[in-house]
């Protein structure tokens, strides 16, 4: 079965850190339309702190994702700290003790992350938030595996669903978070959390694919 070695975890998390850092201004700009414009700034600050803690060495995927989650939870606050913190800790915990990550392992990770997210928020698809990205992306990966897809193809389906989920937030009226105070005025712009989530899932897939053997 196609898989990648779990000890490449630090490389995958470094790719996540890079994509958030590179999109710092873009994410803040999206947030500025209906939020307070600091999403990119706060995310970049938390991810950069994780890079400092990781140093240059290798780490298992489980340890690297949990370090990222714990750093976000402890350092960035806001809503995104607990949400992304819980999500990455959940992904990491589900990878514990696995040396070669195969598609069913990654499916279990995605599902654990979503379960942990749901333990702290009642947000649903349609609320204009990161759930609009993470829920369809998770289903798409699982659905592709169930239909007999290879790991790489299932990652592609996940990325497509994440990006479609992100785009779906544009026409939504926010039902949760600070943007929900805007009512109709929140329509017409992407949600910043859904956007950063699509960047992260797409980057995770892109980082994993060349490692597959």
């Amino acid at each position: 079965m196609t898989s990648f070695p779990a000890d490449r975890g630090a490389d995958i998390v470094r790719a996540l850190i890079r994509v958030i850092t590179e999109n710092r201004a873009y994410l803040s700009e999206i947030d500025g339309a209906i939020g307070d414009g600091d999403h990119g700034v706060n995310m970049a600050k938390g991810f950069a702190l994780c890079a400092e803690k990781m140093g240059p060495g290798a780490m298992s995927l489980s340890a690297a994702l949990q370090l990222l989650g714990e750093t976000l939870m402890e350092s960035i606050g806001g809503s995104m700290g607990p949400l992304y913190g819980m999500y990455f800790i959940g992904l990491g915990e589900a990878a514990e003790g696995i040396d070669q990550i195969a598609a069913p392992d990654f499916q279990a990770m995605l599902e654990q992350g979503l379960t942990d997210l749901r333990s702290i928020t009642e947000a649903q698809i349609g609320d204009k938030c990161l759930m609009d990205t993470v829920v369809p992306a998770t289903s798409a990966f699982s659905g592709a595996l169930a239909a007999g897809a290879e790991f790489a193809a299932a990652l592609d389906r996940m990325t497509e669903a994440a990006e479609a989920g992100r785009d779906s937030t544009k026409e939504m009226v926010a039902k949760i978070g600070r943007a929900s105070r805007l009512g109709e005025r929140s329509r017409g712009t992407l949600d910043a959390g859904a956007t950063s989530c699509a960047l992260l899932l797409a980057e995770m897939a892109a980082a994993m694919k060349p490692m597959l053997a």
């Binding site: 600091d38 706060n42 939870m73 402890e74 350092s75 606050g77 806001g78 700290g81 607990p82």
Partner: peptide, 12 residues
């Protein structure tokens, strides 16, 4: 104490 206009983390 949180970032500007952003809740402090749970740890704080």
């Amino acid at each position: 104490i949180g970032e500007i206009f952003s809740s402090p983390p749970a740890r704080a």
